[in-house]
Design a protein around this nucleic acid. Sequence first.
DNA 1: ACCAGAAAGTCTCATATGAGACCATCTCGA
DNA 2: TCGAGATGGTCTCATATGAGACTTTCTGGT
Lengths: 174, 174
Amino acid sequence: MRPSRKSPNGTTKDLPPEREPLATVIGGTELQIAYRMGYVLNFYREPSFRRIEMELGLTRPEIVTLIFLNFREGVTASEICEFSGHLKANISRGIIALEKKKLIRRAADKTDSRRQQLFMTAAGRALYARYIPALRERERAMLACLTRAERNEFERLLDKLAAHVPQWAALDEL
Amino acid sequence: MRPSRKSPNGTTKDLPPEREPLATVIGGTELQIAYRMGYVLNFYREPSFRRIEMELGLTRPEIVTLIFLNFREGVTASEICEFSGHLKANISRGIIALEKKKLIRRAADKTDSRRQQLFMTAAGRALYARYIPALRERERAMLACLTRAERNEFERLLDKLAAHVPQWAALDEL
DNA sequence: ACCAGAAAGTCTCATATGAGACCATCTCGA
DNA sequence: TCGAGATGGTCTCATATGAGACTTTCTGGT
């Protein structure tokens, strides 16, 4: 079960005919958009992340911490929490583990000694370089069915949604 | 940390100025679209699901199983796996737990005694009715920043992406 | 300058999860 | 009709995770 669906010969399997309606109707009455986002994202992200976990021995918080550090060094644990959606306890554990593996380096923030800035090591960068291409390639495959114009529009809409997250994310009464 | 961001008085807090650039640039170099999808979806889904887990004592596989059964009774565990992205072991556990709580009912499939069709009980329907409105409302809030036209277009693009998932999801070499 | 409260990060404990073995049943080709 | 392989579902074990307590440091109002 799950994302990997290969027939014995390794080629993609045709969906059994009786299953099609389920695929198309699913979520038809409730949570249409949210359901579809989750559906697509799951198939994009889970297999890749599981693979990284198994092959490189990283946990999810460790993976995303390296992703964050790759594009901005010096961020703190709480910033990673803020934008990754992981709980701070898990990011904390991940950071401790990454440091133990010499993949990142920690430095106390001069202006606020509670904080610690994080930096990648060469080893960290090398490990990151080993798993990011597959993620990029898989993102490309996910989006391949859209035209360039559609992709741009999709990205624009996602940007808009992302920008407005703070306006409703705090409504945890819902 | 995490989705809930309330200031002491309970109103939404303005983002600290130095954090804004991080939010906007994040994912700017890699996985732009996938990152944003994950970001938005996390803030939509996690708080709601955590809340349901805590208040109603359901696990995630149990939650999604009820959601699936709500709109189509008689589905099997493997169909739920197929479309929910959960591992079959977890769905299996969830189903066993749901039956134990009398929220669903199982019936052996006449034509294939390996399979078992699943049905909601009145209690299951009642419990579902207790948590789905919050999810609906939260989806509405998430999408509130889009115009109606944009929402339609977003949904159309998601449909297209979802329909093409089978074409690339099997590529687990990536 | 002080104190109450917020924030950063770490820790503990119980639980949910992922991986994969396992059994029973079904399917399909020889 | 038989047997090999696929499929549906369950189980076990190790691990990752969520909740929340706790410590230390910072901040803002008085």
